[in-house]
């Protein structure tokens, strides 16, 4: 937040929070020295899962499998980082899966339309990626404006756009699939399938987004405002935080994250269909909460969110690599693990 009039001091705002987990930042810092099992709940859960996975199938612990899992986590992971900001600020966004599907479809249509006009497929792909980011940012800002200026609950706004985005995609796709042209598919492929120093490109981008997110949340005025608003919006307002503006920006940020996730997703299958991104919103929200962010807002962790997202995909990976449990029960296993991890990182009342 470049043009904020007065910097908000760290301590007073979280303290002003009525009830709930009061000392958000203060406790985090003072506890950094000693080991807090609640804070490391998700990490402990993940380590346990890794041990179980390796014991059940030795192929689990191979580099290739690890990279497969991290690569497929990248989409949800990147969206979760954006979602982390929205939830910390006390908001929610249910539309991200539909938004990703619509951005994917619109982006493919735009690239297919540009192809005859430009000689270089790489240029077309570059413009397509830019388009995806702009579209995501635009959708996010629109959410933010409807929520702040329109004074509509975020749950309702994004429930509405959840339906709108997916319906528009289905309409654009005529109920079928929107598919990227062959040449473009070849030029775009490396963005998902390529790797750098043995690590796939989407994993690098996931890492960069996570680092940027952690920096933004913990080391900038914007990050402090987001936490202050989630802790107590009234107090933040009195402390001269431009609440509406910060909120709009968090939704815009999430939109851009969805755009980034989509531009990594499109080269995987080269297509978008009405089933693209179904239930991503729940996975993203689950990753954020499992990672130790308070659903009520006010406090949260980017690193925890990353661990949460990885944890969720490791569960389904282990289930696919074994057949000790009936496939009918897969969702139940996932449910149990999510609840167990949430229990490990629960807060004291």
């Amino acid at each position: 937040m470049p043009s904020a009039p007065t910097p908000v001091p760290d301590a007073p705002v979280p303290e002003a929070r009525n009830g709930g987990a009061a000392p958000a930042k203060g406790a985090g810092r003072s506890a950094a020295g000693r080991f807090d099992p609640h804070r490391f709940g998700p990490v402990i859960g993940l380590i346990l899962l890794l041990v179980v996975g390796t014991a059940l199938n030795p192929d689990f612990a191979t580099w290739d499998n690890l990279m497969n899992v991290l690569t497929r986590t990248a989409f949800i992971g990147i969206i979760s980082i954006g979602m982390c900001f929205v939830i910390i600020s006390g908001g929610i966004d249910l539309s991200v899966g539909s938004m990703a599907a619509l951005i994917a479809g619109a982006m493919i249509l735009a690239m297919n339309a540009l192809q005859p006009l430009l000689a270089s497929p790489v240029a077309v792909v570059g413009l397509g990626m830019l388009f995806a980011l702009l579209l995501g940012g635009g959708f996010g800002l629109a959410h933010g404006l409807l929520i702040t200026r329109g004074r509509i609950e975020p749950f309702i706004v994004t429930l509405g756009t959840l339906g709108i985005f997916r319906a528009v995609l289905t309409w654009l796709a005529d109920g079928g699939a929107i598919t990227l042209d062959g040449d473009l598919s070849d030029a775009y492929g490396p963005v998902y399938y390529g790797s750098l120093l043995g690590v796939p490109v989407p994993v690098w981008i996931f890492l960069l987004v996570a680092l940027a997110g952690a920096l933004l949340l913990n080391r900038t005025a914007f990050g402090r405002y987001v936490q202050a608003i989630g802790s107590n919006e009234q107090v933040a307002r009195f402390a001269a935080v431009e609440v509406d503006r910060v909120k709009v920006l968090t939704y815009g940020l999430l939109g851009v994250c969805v755009g980034i996730a989509t531009l990594l997703y499109v080269p995987r299958l080269g297509s978008a269909s009405p089933t693209t991104g179904i239930l991503w919103e729940l996975e993203a929200i689950a990753a954020v909460i499992v990672g130790g962010t308070s659903f009520k807002g006010g406090e949260g962790r980017v690193a925890g969110t990353v661990v949460g997202a990885v944890l969720l995909s490791v569960i389904s990976n282990i289930l696919n690599l074994t057949s000790i449990i009936s496939v009918y029960l897969n969702a139940a296993v996932q449910g149990c693990v999510i609840i167990a991890v949430a229990f490990l990182q629960r807060r004291r009342p």
Binding site: N57, D59, F60, T62, D64, N65, N68, R72, R268, L269, S271, S273, T275, T276, I278, S316, N317, N320, L321, V327, N330
Partner: peptide, 19 residues
């Protein structure tokens, strides 16, 4: 199960190929 869905089929197949 891969839910008649391309993305789920991709993930399940990746894991089958690992296994």
């Amino acid at each position: 199960y891969a839910n008649w869905n391309r993305d789920d089929a991709f993930k399940v197949t990746q894991d089958f190929l690992t296994r």
